[in-house]
């Protein structure tokens, strides 16, 4: 109870009543926090533009003991991440980062690792990095943070080594399945050797700095696999990930962020 303060990132929000706004934040100390910012939509609100999506700052809120909707007192902006609003592609990529952060975050339970992951991805987007590669890195790190890092070297069920060629990935099992084990698996998706090669490299090190260039088909395959697996594990669709697919002329693959 009482006033609490933590470093935080704005990961969502919606309007409430006449001029108020419910802001969703991921905080370093208390995990996901939902708080009402009174009068935030008024032109002369004391919050100004600080509570916009992606903003990083220091949050002070009044914790209500009987509700998970708290009262936002103060938000001192550190990084507004202006640059993320300069193209629809960049904005969509950044939206995926905060949306996944919100899906993975837990109320009342801060994770320094998740916080650093979200903030780091926003910073890299803001500094200009190839969008789809950055998002795949983010998705893999997210899986690692959540403890769902897939098994891609052996069969996840029987631990036997796998034959060459196209593999089968069990969503429920969380890894590749050998021809024997895949029979009993409910939901599977195929993985080509090229996509697997990329994933191996990505899991071992920093793909943000690696020189992997992927042909469009493999790029799309890796995206599909990672997002489907995350959606399966988190039990919800990643809306921002599907956003640009329906809009002609826009794609995350055609542009780097600057």
């Amino acid at each position: 109870m009482g006033l609490k303060s933590s470093e935080a990132i704005v990961i969502g929000g919606h309007n409430l009543g006449e001029a108020d706004r419910i802001v969703v934040l991921y905080t370093l100390s208390y995990g996901k926090v939902r708080a009402v910012a009174a009068g935030a939509r008024r032109i002369r609100s004391r919050f100004g533009g600080s509570l916009e999506l992606f903003s990083h700052g220091r949050l002070v809120y009044f914790e209500r003991p009987t509700s998970d909707l708290h009262r936002l007192n103060e938000f001192a902006l550190c990084e507004p991440f202006h640059g993320l609003r300069t193209s629809l592609e960049l904005l969509t990529a950044a939206s995926e980062v905060v949306e996944l952060g919100g899906m993975a975050g837990v109320e009342g339970e801060g994770s320094a690792e998740l916080f650093a992951l979200i903030l780091g991805a926003l910073r890299r987007l803001n500094n200009g990095m190839e969008l789809s590669l950055l998002l795949r890195t983010f998705e893999i790190r997210m899986l690692r943070t959540l403890g769902y890092l897939p098994e891609i070297d052996k069969c996840v069920r029987c631990r036997r080594s796998l034959p060459e060629g196209v593999q089968s990935f069990g969503l429920n099992e969380g890894g590749l399945l050998c021809p024997v084990c895949r029979g009993g698996a409910m939901e599977t998706t195929t993985v080509s050797p090229a996509a697997l090669g990329f994933l191996r490299e990505a899991l071992q090190g920093e793909i943000g700095s690696s020189h992997v260039t992927l042909i469009p088909e493999v790029r799309e395959e890796v995206r599909y696999l990672l997002q489907t697996f995350l959606e399966f594990k988190l039990g919800r669709r990643i809306r921002s990930a599907r956003f640009l697919a329906g809009i002609p002329g826009f794609s995350l693959d055609t542009l780097s962020s600057h």
Partner: peptide, 11 residues
């Protein structure tokens, strides 16, 4: 409006 995070597209 459009909103990537809420899945609201141009249609």
């Amino acid at each position: 409006t459009l909103s990537p995070i809420d899945g609201r597209g141009p249609d």
